[in-house]
Amino acid sequence: MQETTSTRVNALIDPSMHIWHYEVPVYLFLGGLVAGLMVIAGLWTLRDPDRPRSRALQLLPWAAPVLISVGMLFLWLDLENPFNAFRFYFTFELTSPMSWGSWILLGVYPASILLAWVSTPTDLRDRWLARLERVPGLGRLDAWVSAHVPLLATLNILLGAALGIYTGVLLGTMAARPLWNSAILGPLFLVSGLSTGAAFMMLYRLERREKELLSRVDMGLISVELLLLALWMIGLAAGGAASRAGLHTIMGGPYTAAFWTLVVALGLLTPLVGEWIEHRHSAVPARLTAVLVLVGGLALRWIIVYAGQHSGWVSDLASR
């Protein structure tokens, strides 16, 4: 028998850490979604640059800069010292995933805005150009961008992948929070981001073949995501005492029900089966499955962020 007491009563830490609230998972969700949008838009542009696409698909790349701005607003709201946010851009810290992230976000803006610009339907673009003709250099920029579409698309794929991976690595590098402390979180969040990106696009009025392609790709992504989730949990289960205690938060502990129902059942298995049935019966992919994928993507990050803070070296193990 051992009974321990501590006089420490630091808010945000005791009795268990709760420093990150809804702002962080919402940002991670939007960041992942934007990563997915950028990668998919880039790949689509490279795959068929000339084939006419539906108007919705041509306009969708604009969602990336808009949604990342919303995400960054939430990130900013999380800061306790928000007016020091400029400090992120006074330095580059090689070992800090958050520092990598802030510089990646700075690259996401020009890359996604320029790709959205060249993807915009020609009639609309000409109208905007005519209205903005007084802006100096815009004509030249338009000409340059139009001549470098493959480069821009590649840049979007690379930056999107970096954005998706960093949001997972950010948590994965915390050895002190065993549930997060896995390199699999990087690819897991990237694949989940790609899946939510595809789902977000399916909400709009695309052509049938476009929806079918996205839905087929999404089935693959969900399958890979399930595999990565399993590998993540196997890695923790096969780890030391702290890892196993971390895993316990979603395997018997307080976040078990939420994780298995919202993330696994509702957010992954149901849309996977739904998409499979749609393909079997060549039905038009429904919006409901897409909404479930989005709910699952948000729940995944929400639960991992909260449960991870619940895990630790000190609170789960007697110090000595």
């Binding site: 420490r8 808010a11 830490i13 420093i19 800061l79 928000p82 946010a85 002190a176 609170s315």
Partner: peptide, 18 residues
């Protein structure tokens, strides 16, 4: 220089920061 991002609180295995 501190933005209050709290990454260090999460990273500390001793929970020594606030």
């Amino acid at each position: 220089k501190c933005t209050g991002c709290k990454a260090c609180i999460a990273a500390c295995p001793y929970d020594a920061r606030f």
